[in-house]
Write a protein that binds this DNA or RNA. Sequence first.
DNA 1: ACCTGAACACCGTTCAAGT
DNA 2: ACCTGAACACCGTTCAAGT
Lengths: 185, 185
Amino acid sequence: VSPAIAKTSDRDIIAAARRLIKQRGADELTLQDVAQAVGIKAPSLYKRFKDRTALLRAVKDDALTELETVLRKAADDHPAPVALKKMAFAYRRFGKRQPEIYRLIYRPELKDATLEPERKAAAPALELMTALLGPRVSLAAARCITSFLHGFVLMEITGNFRLGESVDAAFDFSIEVILNGLMKS
Amino acid sequence: VSPAIAKTSDRDIIAAARRLIKQRGADELTLQDVAQAVGIKAPSLYKRFKDRTALLRAVKDDALTELETVLRKAADDHPAPVALKKMAFAYRRFGKRQPEIYRLIYRPELKDATLEPERKAAAPALELMTALLGPRVSLAAARCITSFLHGFVLMEITGNFRLGESVDAAFDFSIEVILNGLMKS
DNA sequence: ACCTGAACACCGTTCAAGT
DNA sequence: ACCTGAACACCGTTCAAGT
C-alpha cells in the first residue's frame, strides 16, 4: 500500500491563506478557498491545523515575525532618537501596505498561550526607549508610542481620517509631539 | 382580518443586541439569540433591519451617541487643558467598561455612507484642541491624541499590556507627555 | 402590519474509506 | 501518511402563508 504523497505543506498553506487575507480580509477567508489555492480539499487542512483559528494564528505569527524584522532593519545602527522615528515610519508603512494583515495581528481570539511572537514584535520599541530614556520610564514610554502608532495606523487604514488636511503631516507632527514630550519627562 | 400586533420595537431589539454583544462579543452574536431575547423568531428581524450588518450598525450608532454624551459631560465647562485630560480619562473608561461595544464601534464594515455618528463622536476632541492650540494645528493635534487613546484602549482591552508595571500610570504618563509636547509645538 | 415555519445556501468540522 | 466524499451542525436569509 502506497501512502498518499503530500500535495502541499504547512508553509504553502500559510502563504496562500496570507495572500487571500491580504486581498479580501480575514472575515472573507474560506477554508475551501485556501484548500483550492494549494490544490487540496478543505477537510485535508485539518491534518495540519486544528481548526480555522489555528490557521489564522499561524498566519498572524508569520506576519509578526516579518514585522519584527522590518522594525529592526529600520532602526539599524542609528542613534536612538533617529532610530525611533525610522521605526515609527516603518511601522506605519507595514500597516498601510497590508491593512488586512495588520488587522489580523491584533485579533484578540488569535492570542496564544505563549505570547512569544507578540513579545518579540514589541521588543524593538522597548529597547530603543531604554536606550533613550533609561529603564525607569522606558516601559511607560514604549506603551505611549506603541499605542499611538497602533491607533493611528488603524484609524488610517479603517478610513477614520476624513476631515481633510494631510494625514502624512499629522503623523509627522504627532511623532514630533510625542518625542518632544518624552524628552522633557 | 386583524393585523399582527408588534411584539417588540426597533429600540428593544437594539438594546437586546447591545446587551448580548457586551457579554459575548459581536462575533458570537446570533440573530436567533437576539430574536429570542425580544420574544420573536429570527426571520421577523428582517422586517426591521435589512440584514445582520444593519442591526450591528444600529447598535454602533447607539453606542457612538452615548460616547459623545460621555465625552461632552466629562469636558463640561472646564478650561481646555483640564477638559482634555478629563475627556481622555472618560474615553478610556468607556472603552474599559464595554470592551466589546468599543471594538464594535470601529469595525470597518459598519461605516455607513453619511459618517454622521462618527463625526459627532470625534467633534469634542477637535473643539477642545482648537480652543487650546488654535485652528492651525488643531486637526493634527486631535488626530494625535485620538490615535493614542484609540490605540491605548485597544491594547488594554485586548490584553496587550502584559509586561507588568501599572497600566494606569502608563496612561497618566502618556497623557502628560502628549499634552506637554503639544504645548511646545 | 407584523409574525412564523419551512426551505435554501454556505461554511466549518468530523469521519470512514481510499491510496 | 495524507487525501477525499459524504454527512452534519449551525446560521444568515428568503418567502409563502398566517393573523
